[in-house]
Design a protein around this nucleic acid. Structure first.
Lengths: 306, 306
DNA sequence: TCACGCTTTGAAAGATATTTTCATCGCACG
DNA sequence: CGTGCGATGAAAATATCTTTCAAAGCGTGA
């Protein structure tokens, strides 16, 4: 039979993307949809066995809500979500032992803490990578590359991420500044104009201290970018471009700052590499130059692979 | 045959067993059922996307025949065969595409960059977790918990990691300072005494600017700790305790600073959680207090779906 | 504080998909 | 040349999924 042997592959990449989407989208959903999403994320294998009605009942919602959730997660309907769930469960079966997915307890031995934290950060990275909108990323890279001047706003843990970005950009010859003082940030923001880039980093998407300077830059006509876990947050109102980071459940011993930082740093790295690629002629010598310069600050030990 | 009563269906046999069963049972089947079985075995992924009607049409048979085939293959009905098919297909293609392990090229599309960076950082985390000496970690946590004062030294990218650690420790009531100015670092280091902790962060293990203050602290009798990728480096000479971070190959577009930072941050997080566990009585209220305090800095926006 | 409007939600109607039923067909054998 | 029996598909019956719509909830602004 001559069937259309061409790639009938659909975009429905069943893999980790599913869990990622659940975690990324979950916070922006209404309550009952969240319940469904949680149930699905908690036990995909079990949910794959359930009909709409059964899942609705189990989550204490209605069929309509289940279908709506499936839609938000990117499937045409529940039927397809179910298939993806089955696929996901199969893929996951050889995966992590349940113990590392549990929350960190006060009396966990340190070895477990290490395993759980590592697992969690790995998951965060996978989620972020899966959830990143590459076209937005592309646009941000373009804006950064062309910018006359780049201002970065971040507070608390996000301030460090901002500094990381700035360090990297400086290293390849861009003009970038990190601001964590809200007043100075605004003061500087009003100096920006079209062609400049203002970039705000906030996990919650609602941090006033970084939204204010971003707004100021926005009003001045600069290209504004937000790196946030909440693309529906207030920060997005003044952001021309939004890069979404994964959001994971937090707990007392695992503050949100921890996973958001991991997530944000991945985005920052992507930006850096993207810009470095596009300005390679200029960046490559700059990179080696800074490498050379640093060698002097190291003792003359020869570095070798261990 | 079996009526659809309470016959529970085991989904654990989705794997290669499916193909095997098709081959085993195929010869005993009537012609049209064979056609269905063949189609299923030939391209499970594609068949998983088809409805009964579609599969019947494609194989030139009827819905009834498809359902019968599903039954013979051991499933309660077509719906379940379809789920198994999806799971099977997912398992087949589960291995990581080799492409993500390759180095980042100047002309890689941004989507590949994201995938590669994420993959790499995930690998770094796994390596670090695997390579961490838990007994050393335990000792460091103990020292931090008991310390009167904690000084942290880091330069460049490691400076940010140091600040991250300090932010976290301050948050749970410890007295910690980050130093990235080598002179000030030494000046402060000589103030340390037994029972204090000095912690140096350096990827290369040979950064003079952080080794000097660590040495000063060491000479004063403080407990000295190194977080480094080179436990055989110069920094280890003045470190009572050494925590080893994973070292990955670097390249022009993927500076060492990138993966070392990921690695170092994991260690920092482990330290933080370890200390928080051991000082839980004090840390828990402090953590919630700082959380409360921050809430005021966020706008009162309610999260809503976009 | 209260009313307004927008969002969220579930009940039930509507549409599809799956399963069952049953009449017909094809083939082997008497 | 029948006759019997499994194989087969059309169509009915059922289960499942999707859509619609009205009511309830909730934040917003007067």
């Amino acid at each position: 039979m001559t069937q259309n042997a061409k790639e009938t592959f659909r975009q429905c990449d069943t893999g980790p993307a599913l869990a990622a989407r659940v975690r990324t989208l979950s916070p922006t959903m209404p309550r009952s949809m969240q319940r469904v999403a949680e149930a699905v994320a908690a036990d995909p294998a079990a949910c794959a066995q359930l009909t709409v009605t059964a899942l609705a009942q189990r989550t204490g919602t209605s069929e309509a809500t289940v279908v709506r959730t499936a839609r938000v997660l990117g499937y045409p309907g529940y039927r397809d979500l179910r298939l993806a769930l089955a696929a996901f469960a199969a893929q996951q079966q050889s995966g992590a032992p349940a113990s590392v997915t549990a929350d960190i307890a006060v009396d966990d031995p340190l070895a477990d803490v290490v395993a759980k934290l590592a697992h969690d950060e790995r998951q965060t990275l996978a989620d972020t990578a899966a959830g990143l909108d590459v076209s937005q990323l592309e646009a941000v890279v373009g804006a950064l590359t062309a910018a006359r001047r780049i201002d970065v706003y971040g507070i608390g843990a996000s301030a460090l991420v901002g500094q990381d970005l700035v360090q990297k950009l400086l290293r390849i010859g861009l003009i970038a500044h990190a601001h964590s003082d809200p007043h100075l940030a605004v003061t500087n923001a009003v100096q920006l104009r079209q062609g400049d880039v203002a970039l705000a980093i906030t996990h919650s998407g609602n941090t006033v201290d970084v939204i204010e300077p971003l707004r100021a830059a926005f009003d001045r006509g600069a290209t504004t970018v937000a790196i946030t876990g909440r693309p529906d947050g207030a920060v997005a109102r003044y952001a021309d471009l939004v890069l979404t980071t994964a959001v994971r459940r937090e707990s007392e011993l695992r503050p949100a700052a921890m996973s958001s930082r991991t997530s944000q740093l991945l985005v920052v790295d992507c930006l850096f590499v993207g810009v470095a690629q596009r300005t390679y002629e200029r960046a490559a010598p700059a990179l080696s130059a800074s490498y050379e310069a640093l060698a002097h600050r190291h003792s003359p030990e020869a570095p070798t692979a261990r």
